[in-house]
C-alpha cells in the first residue's frame, strides 16, 4: 500500500510520531546532561558550529563597549591629568614659598650675625621710592625706634645706603646707587683711598678723579674707609667691574658694581650712629664727609 502511494503524498512519519521521537530524544538529552554528565562532547561540537553566529552577534556590541571604555578612559585620564597638574602647581607654589622662606631665614641669620658685631636694628623694606629720579627705599623703622638721619643701612654683603629722612614709624634710605651719592672708600687690596659716586637707580657706581696710575683693576673690592666718621670702616661697598684708561682724558673711567644686593632683599640692618668723634678743627677747609 505504501509503495503504491504517489511521492507527492509522502510526508514521512506523522507529526505525533515525530513529536514522540524528538521529545524522547530531548528527554534523553536532558537526562544524559543533568544526571550522567556525558554530553560534554555533543555540547562542544554544537558550540563550534554556533561560534561564528555568536561571534557575529556579540562583536559589534563588544566593539561598542570597548570604544565606550576607550573614550571613558580618555576623559578620565584627561580629568586626572588636569587634577594632577593643579596639585603640582599648588605643590610648586608651596615649594617656592619654602625656598623663599629658607633664603629669608638665611639672610636673617646672617644679619643677626652682623648685628652681634655692631649695634644696629633690623628694618624691613616697606616699598621702594616711586620717584624715578632717585633711588630710595622706605623701611619700617623711624623716629620711634631711634633711627636718625645719617645712619647707615647694610645687608649681609655690604653697604646699601644711608638714612636721609625719618618719620615717626618709617624712614627713607638713600641707596648708594642714587645719583651723586658719595661714599668714601678704599680698595681692599692696595688701600687706595677715594670716593665712589652713585649714577642713578639701577646703574653701576663710578669712581671719579682717580689718578691714571692709581693701583686699581677689575675685581678689586672697595670697602668703606671710615674717614668721614659716618660710615664705619671696612664695610664692603662695591666691586670694580671695569677700568678704562682713555688717552685723552685726565682720569680713568672706573665702573663698579655694588657689593650689596641693592634691589634684592626684604630686610636691612640700620647701624647705630658711631660715637661722636672729636670736634672738627675750627678752620676746617673741606671735609670729605659724605652727605
Amino acid at each position: 500500500m505504501q509503495a503504491t502511494q504517489p511521492a507527492f503524498f509522502k510526508q514521512g512519519p506523522k507529526p505525533l510520531t515525530r513529536l514522540l521521537i524528538f521529545s524522547t530524544l530531548s528527554i534523553a538529552l536532558m537526562v544524559g546532561d543533568a544526571q550522567l554528565q556525558m554530553l560534554g562532547r555533543v555540547r562542544e561540537q554544537v558550540a563550534i558550529v554556533l561560534y561564528p553566529l555568536q561571534w557575529l552577534a556579540t562583536t559589534p556590541f563588544a566593539a561598542l563597549h570597548s570604544t565606550r571604555d576607550f573614550l571613558t578612559v580618555q576623559t578620565d585620564l584627561i580629568a586626572e591629568n588636569r587634577k594632577l597638574n593643579d596639585q603640582l602647581l599648588a605643590a610648586q607654589a608651596k615649594a617656592l614659598r619654602m625656598d623663599g622662606l629658607a633664603a629669608e631665614n638665611a639672610q636673617l641669620r646672617a644679619l643677626d650675625y652682623r648685628r652681634t658685631k655692631a649695634p644696629s636694628q633690623l628694618a624691613e623694606i616697606l616699598y621702594s621710592g616711586r620717584d624715578p629720579f632717585s633711588a630710595k627705599l622706605i623701611v619700617d623703622r623711624g623716629d620711634n625706634q631711634g633711627v636718625q638721619a645719617g645712619q647707615i643701612a647694610i645687608d649681609t654683603q655690604g653697604v646699601v645706603g644711608q638714612v636721609v629722612r625719618t618719620q615717626a614709624m618709617t624712614s627713607e634710605i638713600r641707596l648708594i646707587t642714587d645719583r651723586n651719592h658719595m661714599v668714601p672708600v678704599m680698595t681692599q687690596r692696595s688701600q687706595v683711598r677715594t670716593v665712589i659716586y652713585g649714577r642713578g637707580a639701577g646703574q653701576l657706581l663710578e669712581v671719579r678723579y682717580l689718578a691714571p696710575n692709581a693701583d686699581i683693576k677689575p675685581g678689586d673690592l672697595l670697602v668703606t674707609s671710615g674717614l668721614d666718621g659716618t660710615y664705619p670702616s671696612g664695610l664692603p661697598v662695591a666691586v670694580v667691574v671695569s677700568v678704562e684708561r682713555v688717552a685723552g682724558a685726565s682720569f680713568p673711567r672706573i665702573l663698579c658694581r655694588p657689593a650689596a644686593g641693592i634691589d634684592t632683599h626684604r630686610f636691612l640692618l640700620i647701624l647705630d650712629p658711631p660715637p661722636a668723634g672729636p670736634a672738627y678743627p675750627a678752620p676746617a677747609a673741606a671735609n670729605a664727609s659724605a652727605s
Binding site: 528527554i27 538529552l29 544524559g32 546532561d33 554556533l50 553566529l53
Partner: peptide, 12 residues
C-alpha cells in the same frame, strides 16, 4: 548550547 542551558530543554 548557546544559552548554556540544560541540553534538551529548548529542544523539548
Amino acid at each position: 548550547v548557546a544559552d548554556g542551558n540544560l541540553l534538551g530543554q529548548h529542544a523539548l
